[in-house]
């Protein structure tokens, strides 16, 4: 469906909420912090970004609407993320010798929806990730969509959707942790 058709159906495919500069700034800072946490492999800080029932989700196809009960590239709650962290930190995680290094750039931050009562947000953004390991560099590009809960200490991720542009491509693997 084209943009025009979407609009004639009364739905904006790229909704944006009118939010103040302060909110825009705060959410951008939150996304930058998440990117730094990944690049620096600060796993306790990573887990603390999510609500207790939060999920990190990378669908296996762009048209997927839910993660539950579907094939996914990533679909992880706290417990599965803890397994992954435990593995990456384990001395026998052979394919982490040498470990990979990443550099994340997050940009194009658009607040899609804002709940005036709770302060909860839905935020779209774009990312570029360069990964280096074993003399090889790979690049991943795509978009994030964060559903954020506003708490007393700032935002927490209820659901982070990650769509990579090469979603159906062959991989040796994507990343051994999150993009």
């Amino acid at each position: 469906m084209s943009r025009a058709q979407e609009n004639s159906a009364g739905r904006d495919p790229l909704p944006a909420a009118a939010v103040g500069l302060e909110t825009q700034h705060a959410v951008a800072q939150f996304l930058y912090r998440q990117a730094e946490i990944l690049d620096d492999r600060l796993w306790d800080d990573w887990l603390a970004l999510f609500t207790p029932d939060g999920h990190y989700w990378m669908p296996a196809a762009p048209e997927q609407l839910v993660g539950e009960g579907q094939p996914n590239i990533f679909y992880e709650d706290h417990y599965l993320m803890r397994v992954r962290i435990g593995r990456v930190n384990h001395p026998n995680a052979w394919s982490q010798y040498p470990p990979n290094r990443t550099g994340h750039v997050v940009s194009n931050v658009v607040v899609e929806a804002a709940d005036p009562a709770s302060g909860d947000l839905v935020v779209r953004s774009k990312f570029l990730v360069a990964e280096y390991r074993n003399d090889e560099q790979r690049v991943f590009a795509g978009k994030y969509r964060h559903q954020l809960k506003k708490g007393p200490d700032g935002y927490l991720i209820q659901l982070q959707r990650v769509d990579i542009v090469n979603v159906e491509g062959p991989f040796d693997y994507v990343l051994q942790y999150w993009i």
Partner: peptide, 13 residues
């Protein structure tokens, strides 16, 4: 899946 915690080490071997 491409995020496998199993085959990643197989492929490395």
């Amino acid at each position: 899946s491409p995020s496998t915690m199993i085959n990643a080490d197989d492929l490395f071997n």
